Amino acid sequence: MNIVILLGSPNRQGSSRMLAESFRQGAEEAGHTVEMIDVAHGNIHPCTGCIHCGYEGPCSQEDDMETIRGKILVADMMIFVTPLYYYGMSAQLKILVDRFCAFNSSIQRKHMKSALLTVAWNSDDWTFDALEAHYKTLVRYLNLEDTGMVLGYGCGTPSMTKRSSYPQKAYALGKQLS
């Protein structure tokens, strides 16, 4: 399976990347091809709502999105990776998701698999409720098959995350993919 990891953390050495790398290791050991795209540091502009794309065509903006679009459309699975920012995904990942409007139908027709990897400082039982709801809505709307979520409660720093069970859970999620 061809997997694309959409890394939405502005922290290049943070907890989100730690989960992404753990997932990648497990998936590659299981025989899958994995490409990580650092969308937080890519040249991706917000959607302007101009509808130049006609909801299934090229975007009028000149940035990295056409390259990323190509990588997503040859993938069999998308992994959404984000730190929890004010109970939602990072703005960097949300900008990318908003740009899906130029190829929604193409994504929907693929019936891709997906997963969510996320971390938060907070460890209240409701910490991820809003992000989970958003992710599940994306799964439903884009006709994705959810293969799981790793919700890293109490992972405010990389050292906290490293001492937690969440990197192992991300690894196991990648390793069990068929």
Rank of each mutant, 00 (worst) to 15 (best):
L73W: 04
F23N: 00
G152T: 05
A91V: 11
P167H: 01
Y87L: 12
L142E: 11
H134I: 13
I95Q: 02
Y141C: 10
K113W: 09
I3P: 01
S178T: 15
L144K: 00
P167A: 01
P46I: 08
N2F: 09
N43F: 09
G42L: 08
L117F: 07
D63G: 10
K136V: 14
D64H: 02
G154S: 04
V81H: 00
A75Q: 05
P58I: 10
G49H: 11
S164K: 07
R99C: 04
K113T: 04
Y171F: 14
G152S: 05
N122A: 10
G42Y: 06
L93M: 05
Y166K: 04
P10Q: 02
T137N: 15
H32N: 03
Q176R: 14
G70L: 12
R109H: 14
A130N: 10
W121H: 15
S105D: 13
N43E: 09
V34P: 00
R17I: 07
L93W: 01
L6P: 00
E62S: 06
W121C: 08
I79H: 02
L117K: 04
G42K: 13
D129L: 08
I107P: 05
E29Q: 12
S165R: 14
C101S: 11
D64A: 04
K71R: 14
G70C: 09
